[in-house]
Write a protein that binds this DNA or RNA. Structure first.
Length: 194
DNA sequence: CCCTGATTCGC
DNA sequence: GCGAATCAGG
C-alpha cells in the first residue's frame, strides 16, 4: 500500500482526533503502526504532548545545526476553517489524573456511570457489578487499553479510585457486567417513578 | 506483558 | 519517501 492522498488525509484526521498509531494503522489497513508513525513524522505532525513516549532525552540524536534563516513571507491565502476546538488537557491530566480522567476517558455521548449509588437498575445487574468489582483488576490510568473495562470505581479524589479493567465487551468501553448497568434499555428507565 | 510514540537507517 | 527494527517509557 502506498500513501495516497486520501490515505494521508485519513491519517491526518485520525491522528488529529487523537487516535493511536496502531489504531490508525488498523483502519487504514495494509500498514503497520510503525509506518503510520513514520509518516506522521514526515508529515510534520507529531507532538500531541503524549504521555506515552519521551520525545526528549535522546542522547543518540545529535543536535542538528540549523543555519537556515529562511525568511518566509509565505503569503498563504489559506483561511482554512479547520477550526477544531480540541479541548485536550494533556498537562492537566498529569497533574490531576482522577478528575480529568472522568471526562477524558468516557466518550462524549456515552452514559456516565452511575457509581455504586445506582438507582433503579436491574437488581441482577447491580449484583453482578458488585461481584465483578471484587475480581476487578483495579487498573490505573496508564493500564487502561482499548480492551479493558473503563468503569471507574470509587471516588476520583481518593486513593481508592480505580478502573475495573476486566476484558471489555466487544465494541463497548466496559466489561459485560458494567455494560449491563451502563447501557439500559429505554423501556426500563422510561417509566421510572420519580 | 500489554501498550504508546520516537528515532534510526538501509532500502 | 518509506517502514522495520529498535529504543524508551507507562
Amino acid at each position: 500500500m502506498s500513501w495516497t492522498d486520501e490515505r494521508v488525509e485519513l491519517l491526518k484526521k485520525l491522528w488529529g482526533e487523537g487516535q493511536s498509531a496502531s489504531q490508525i494503522a488498523k483502519e487504514l489497513g495494509g500498514v503497520t503502526r510503525n509506518a503510520v508513525i513514520g509518516k506522521v513524522h514526515r508529515l510534520g505532525l507529531s507532538n500531541r504532548t503524549s504521555g506515552g513516549a519521551k520525545a526528549e532525552a535522546k542522547p543518540k540524536a545529535e543536535a542538528k545545526p540549523k543555519p537556515a534563516p529562511k525568511p518566509k513571507p509565505a503569503p498563504k491565502p489559506k483561511p482554512e476553517a479547520e477550526a477544531k476546538p480540541e479541548p485536550k488537557t494533556e498537562p492537566a491530566v498529569a497533574a490531576r489524573p482522577a478528575q480529568s480522567m472522568r471526562k477524558a476517558i468516557i466518550p462524549a455521548g456515552q452514559p456516565l456511570p452511575p457509581q455504586p449509588s445506582a438507582n433503579e437498575i436491574s437488581p441482577e445487574a447491580l449484583a453482578k457489578v458488585n461481584e465483578v468489582e471484587k475480581t476487578a483488576k483495579k487498573l490505573s490510568l496508564m493500564e487502561l487499553t482499548e480492551r479493558t473495562c473503563k468503569w471507574p470505581v470509587g471516588d476520583p479524589a481518593t486513593p481508592d479510585f480505580w478502573f475495573c479493567g476486566l476484558p471489555v465487551q466487544a465494541g463497548k468501553p466496559y466489561c459485560e457486567a458494567h455494560v449491563g448497568v451502563a447501557f439500559q434499555p429505554m423501556s426500563s428507565r422510561r417509566d421510572r417513578k420519580r
